[in-house]
Simulated scan of single mutants.
Amino acid sequence: MAASSEHEWRDWLRALPKAELHLHIEGTLEPELMFELSRRNGITLPYADVQAVRDAYRFTDLQSFLDLYYAGAGVLVTEQDFYDLAAAYLRRAHADGVVHAEIMFDPQTHTARGIALDTVFAGLARALREARDTLGMSSCLLLSFLRHLSEDDAFATLEAALPLRETYADLWIGIGLDSSERGNPPEKFARIYARCAQLGFRLVAHAGEEGPPEYVRGALDTLKVARIDHGVRSSEDPALLQEIIRRQVPLTVCPLSNLKLGVVHDLREHNLARLLRAGALVTLNSDDPAYFGGYVLDNYIASAEALDLSRDELVTLAANSLKASFLPPAGRHALLDRLWAAAGRD
């Protein structure tokens, strides 16, 4: 894709209905909103201004990002804060052509600071329900455990959240696993994932970003997840990759995140296109867009340019995002029909 045609491609890609399946709502906290909330809540940030925050976005690995990510999350205190955060993301995603979003949130990041779980749920839910009613954009919540903490801590979080399940039954449908991958294999959370499966939650987990292919296999075989978040290192194990292709296990890939965190050092080296062309059910997502320099449309554009993706391949990526979603079949098929029409395939 030639750089001179970016505007044309951006408009065409924006018009394709797509889902975002790998998005951490805390990772959408733009520096401007971070400072607004810090002033609202009387919190002093360790940065002089917005530019100083952006200057700190030079990460060497996942942990260096997480240190800033958790510091930024400290400005989220009230229900209104969580609403403002989610509403800002949903408006931006809608402008990118996202018609459905499956949003991860990290309750332990907030409860450790004394923030009530219902405060988090209430603020996020208000924004998601409003987007459904005013933008026609569907969404759901994936409560994600922090893997650097203990499984007992995850159990405590789950038990604290379960009384809220009925109130947010229209949104809270799944469980995820994120934070520091190194040294925290999926097997560490085998018992709580079994419990969540019994409760009927949809299951996803981060694996194969910084962790080895064995972590992907552990997430599939031990945690029994329906989807792998990232999963790019699966290609290092040919047998594992063939199983993922055969089973059509979705991979929620985040190219600009991988570039920013040093998983790849040049987007042209990314294995997204190779995975797609090998038959893997790959989707494109933004992960933590405020920190990684791009929302979902930016990831489509950058990947198209760096990897010479064709229009058909970009349509396939959009279709994969809808197919891999946790939408009911009727909703999924309706959005796919919209996509085929937008792509001129009806």
Rank of each mutant, 00 (worst) to 15 (best):
G74H: 04
W9I: 10
A219Q: 03
Q63T: 12
G294Y: 05
A278E: 15
W9C: 05
F65N: 01
H22G: 00
E210I: 09
V53N: 07
A290S: 14
D298W: 02
G72Q: 11
R182M: 12
V99L: 04
V264H: 08
Y70T: 11
H94T: 06
A304S: 06
N184G: 14
H230P: 03
S286E: 05
S286A: 14
G72I: 02
A330D: 11
Y47P: 10
P213C: 03
A160K: 06
A190P: 05
L141C: 09
L143R: 08
Q242W: 10
L327G: 08
L327A: 10
V77G: 11
A88P: 01
Y47R: 15
D237T: 04
E6W: 07
L317C: 11
A205N: 02
L23K: 02
R246I: 11
E181H: 02
T28P: 02
P255G: 02
N285W: 11
P250D: 13
Q51C: 08
A156I: 06
R132L: 14
G74M: 03
M137L: 14
L90H: 06
I301C: 09
L297K: 01
P186C: 14
D152C: 06
S38C: 04
L158Q: 13
R91K: 10
D67C: 05
V99C: 04
R113E: 13
D118G: 03
A73K: 00
F121D: 01
L276W: 13
T283G: 00
V98I: 09
L164I: 02
P186K: 14
H148T: 14
G114Y: 12
P213V: 01
I245G: 07
H110N: 12
L309H: 07
G208H: 13
F59V: 00
V253T: 05
F326R: 09
R14I: 07
K188W: 07
D81K: 01
L223H: 07
G176R: 00
T60I: 11
Q248I: 12
A278C: 13
N285H: 12
R54N: 12
D337C: 08
V232F: 03
L142G: 03
D81V: 03
E305H: 15
K260L: 08
K260A: 08
W172I: 00
G174K: 00
P186V: 15
D346Y: 13
S5L: 14
R311A: 12
L240I: 07
V225G: 00
R92A: 15
